[in-house]
C-alpha cells in the first residue's frame, strides 16, 4: 500500500472535501455499481450505533449499579469492586468483539452483551467508590434520625455519589460507543462500517466515518456531562469549588 502524498494543504483539504461530499451526497462504491454514503445511509448507521450504545449502557447500568450500591452501602467487597474495574480495563475490546462473534455468533443481542461487559467494570467500581466515600457522619446522622436503610441509600448516599457514579457511566459510555465502531465485525452495521470497509467506501468514506464517530462520542460525552451537572445538587457544586 502506497503512503499518501505529503500533506500539502490542497491535498489535505480535498480529502476533507471528499469526506464532506461523502456524507451529504454519497459517491459510487469503490467496488463499482452502487452509490454509498449520503445522508440516508449516514443516518441509518448512526442510529444503529446510538441504539446499540444506549442499549449496552442501559444493560451495564442495570447490572452493575445495584451491586455497587449494595456493596458500597455495606462497605463490603471493596476488593471485588475495585478489581473488577482494573480487570475491565485490561480486556482488549477487539478480541472481545471478535470472540463473541466467532464463538456465539453475530447479531444484536450478542453485540449488546459484549459491549455491556465493557461497561460494567467502570460503573461497578465508581458506584462502589462513590457510595462508600460518602461522609460517614451524614450516614450516621441519617440513621440516628430514623431513616430506613433504603431511605439512606436513596436520599443521602445516592445524591451525594452522583458525580462519582456518573464519572463511571461516562467512562463506560465512551468505551462502549468507541467499541460499537467495530460492531460491523460482529455483523451489526454502525458508522464503523465506513472505517472498516475501506475497500467499499474509499478513503473519503473512511475519513467521513472517523469524523462522524468522533462527533458522536463527543456529543454523547457532552450529553452525559450535562445530565451529571443537572443531577448534582447545588450544595455539592459549592463544596467542590
Amino acid at each position: 500500500m502506497a503512503l499518501p502524498p505529503p500533506p500539502l494543504p490542497a491535498a489535505f483539504l480535498s480529502l476533507f472535501g471528499d469526506a464532506f461530499n461523502f456524507v451529504f451526497s454519497g459517491r459510487e462504491a469503490e467496488t463499482g455499481g452502487v452509490t454509498v454514503g449520503g445522508t440516508s445511509q449516514v443516518i441509518e448507521l448512526a442510529t444503529k450505533q446510538i441504539e446499540v450504545t444506549l442499549l449496552a449502557l442501559a444493560v451495564a447500568i442495570l447490572l452493575a449499579m445495584p451491586v455497587g450500591l449494595w456493596l458500597g452501602h455495606r462497605q463490603q467487597g471493596e476488593f471485588l469492586a475495585v478489581s473488577a474495574g482494573n480487570a475491565g480495563r485490561a480486556i482488549p475490546e477487539l478480541a472481545l468483539i471478535a470472540l463473541m462473534a466467532a464463538a456465539i455468533g453475530v447479531g444484536l443481542v450478542n453485540l449488546v452483551v459484549a459491549l455491556a461487559i465493557l461497561g460494567i467494570p467502570p460503573i461497578l467500581t465508581n458506584t462502589y467508590v462513590g457510595i462508600s466515600q460518602v461522609d460517614r457522619a451524614s450516614v450516621e446522622a441519617a440513621r440516628g434520625m430514623g431513616m430506613s436503610e433504603t431511605g439512606i441509600v436513596r436520599k443521602v448516599e445516592l445524591p451525594l455519589a452522583v458525580p462519582t457514579i456518573m464519572g463511571g457511566v461516562r467512562t463506560a459510555a465512551i468505551n462502549i460507543v468507541a467499541t460499537a465502531t467495530i460492531a460491523p465485525l460482529a455483523g451489526i452495521l454502525t458508522l464503523g462500517d465506513f472505517i472498516i470497509a475501506r475497500n467499499v467506501y474509499g478513503d473519503a468514506g473512511v475519513l467521513a466515518g472517523a469524523i462522524l464517530v468522533a462527533l458522536m462520542a463527543l456529543a454523547l460525552e457532552g450529553t452525559l456531562a450535562t445530565i451529571q451537572w443537572a443531577m448534582t445538587s447545588k450544595g455539592l457544586k459549592l463544596n467542590r469549588s
Partner: peptide, 16 residues
C-alpha cells in the same frame, strides 16, 4: 430514632 434528637461531633449535615 425519629423521636430522639441526635447530634454528633462531625455534625453530619447533608451537603446536598
Amino acid at each position: 430514632r425519629r423521636e430522639i434528637g441526635y447530634v454528633i461531633q462531625q455534625i453530619g449535615l447533608f451537603p446536598h
